[in-house]
């Protein structure tokens, strides 16, 4: 993939991969390559979900401004 990987294009690519595997008619090497790519993308997606986890920060404008200028 030449473009930068993100969750959305990872999901799109995963759909292509599983469809190719579900259709079959490919060689053993191709199967392994697709499986490996799919597993990596799934790991990436799982990581994206994990990275989005955080906490809620609620601050007045002036507080956040003074923190930013520290």
């Amino acid at each position: 993939m030449t473009e930068e990987i993100n969750y959305s294009n990872a999901i799109e690519r995963l759909e292509e991969i599983v469809q190719a595997l579900e259709r079959g008619g490919i060689t053993l090497d191709e199967t392994l390559a697709l499986y490996e790519e799919g597993a990596k993308l799934l790991e990436f997606c799982q990581q994206e979900l994990a990275n989005a986890e955080g906490k809620l920060n609620e601050m007045r404008l002036s507080d956040i401004e003074s923190k930013l200028s520290e």
Binding site: A52, E53, G54, K55, L56, N57, E58, M59, R60, L61, I64
Partner: peptide
């Protein structure tokens, strides 16, 4: 939807 989604609220 996603209780632990990271967010910063800037109160104005």
């Amino acid at each position: 939807r996603w209780p632990s989604l990271r967010r910063t609220v800037i109160g104005v």
